[in-house]
Write a protein that binds this DNA or RNA. Sequence first.
DNA 1: TATTTGACCAAGA
DNA 2: ATCTTGGCCAAAT
Length: 105
Amino acid sequence: MAGKSKSTFFENVWKVCAKLPKGKVTTYKELAHAMNSRAYRAVGQAMHNNPHYPRVPCHRVVASDGTLGGFAHPVKEKIARLKKDGIEVKNGRIVDFEKRLHKFK
DNA sequence: TATTTGACCAAGA
DNA sequence: ATCTTGGCCAAAT
């Protein structure tokens, strides 16, 4: 085997997040879960440092209760991008959150 | 190596 | 339903 390609936690997060279909959202917790981890806080850090937009759609990652969570830019932009993806936000919450929520695997 | 910092979460009050 | 608290984990300092 040639060089061992050890991937960091962040890189794994980005890799999984890149699989999120357009028109859907996921949560920090779900991303962690998909990696068999409970580091949902660290997932937030990975999104904050996401160097791969738009390949990694970090704006479609929200909090477990359907609220928006954070964003590296004004939250206003996150809302705008979601709307562009066909996802509605009202009063700081994802509309029809449960229907929009994507679970990996 | 130890401490601090978050785009979090679940359970209490 | 909203607000507070403690716990959680990886990265950065």
